[in-house]
């Protein structure tokens, strides 16, 4: 199999993971105006929790769902107990979420030690499958497929349900949404929980590819930031497109300019900032 095809598959897989991570980040940022710097920690925490669950005999998919739920519960508690008090105080939210991310990272280091932990690929999805004479790693295809399914599901949720309509109204104009009787406060908790769940879940299904190690949080967070700056905050389509752009830039950048991978990754973001500060699909400036 050619190198660039392999890179393309890896890019799509990473793009899928990033979408799961950044869709929640983008919604939280767009709806609640909270720059959730713990989002990378949610990703890592989900992955770590699943390793323990799997070690206790859970199968991979159950572990992924349950770890996601645990992260969501944690996220909801953080939102209810702390972030809620700081509504509108953006700087305070930045600091608190950053502080929490340091605490989570340190607790993870304490509980799961500093050694990377591998998460085994689920048995049914090991190996490669042959399509048109080319071998594709099954698990990576599955992750991409999951991301697409989730994207469709989220789109349906936002576009076709009452909850989605309320979220969209909140993103566009929270005070107005409140005026027309939407319980924005409960909506915030739901969106924050959903975002945390997506991040935690993404951490688990990313595990077999990335494995889990200290610092994974700080590696994923900037990627999510770039996705949101590229795509525009509060825009699902923006997150989707942005995620795959970043996925490709990251993989091809690393392969072609290993020393400058980070620069390659961030340059388009800077370009977007200069030309179109609201992001490719956003309506408001970041």
């Amino acid at each position: 199999m050619s190198v660039s095809l392999l890179l393309a598959i890896n890019s799509i897989t990473l793009g899928g993971l990033l979408f799961l991570l950044s869709a929640g980040f983008s919604l939280i940022f767009g709806l609640m105006k909270i720059p959730n710097l713990t989002h990378g920690s949610f990703f890592m925490l989900g992955a770590y929790l699943s390793t323990t669950l799997i070690a206790r005999g859970f199968d991979f998919w159950t572990a992924a769902l349950v770890a996601g739920v645990l992260v969501a519960v944690f996220g909801t508690i953080v939102e209810r107990l702390i972030l809620r008090r700081l509504a509108g105080a953006e700087l305070a939210q930045v600091l608190v979420t950053l502080g929490l991310s340091f605490m989570i990272a340190d607790v993870c280091l304490m509980v799961w030690t500093g050694d990377p932990i591998r998460i085994d690929t689920p048995a049914a999805l090991r190996g490669t499958t042959s399509v048109m004479g080319l071998g594709f790693p099954i698990y990576r295809l599955a992750v991409s497929l999951i991301a697409v399914v989730f994207a469709a599901g989220l789109w349906g949720l936002l576009d076709r349900t009452r909850l989605g309509a309320m979220i969209r109204a909140g993103v566009d104009d929270a005070p107005m949404a409140r005026v027309v009787g939407i319980r924005v406060s409960r909506l915030f908790t739901v969106v924050f929980g959903l975002g945390a769940w997506l991040a935690g879940f993404a951490g688990v299904i990313g595990g077999p590819i990335l494995s889990v190690y200290p610092g994974l949080d700080q590696e994923m967070l900037p990627l999510a930031l770039v996705v949101v700056i590229l795509g525009g905050s509060g825009s699902l389509l923006g997150s989707f497109v942005g995620s795959f752009v970043v996925g490709f830039l990251y993989n091809f950048g690393q392969a072609m300019f290993p020393e400058l991978a980070y620069v390659v990754l961030f340059l388009p973001m800077l370009l977007v900032l200069v030309v179109r500060p609201q992001g490719l699909f956003g309506r408001q400036a970041v």
Partner: peptide
């Protein structure tokens, strides 16, 4: 290019 949160995010990225 950004103010408030946008500024914070961009500085993180830089």
């Amino acid at each position: 290019r950004g103010t408030g949160l946008g500024f914070v995010m961009i500085t993180v990225a830089l």
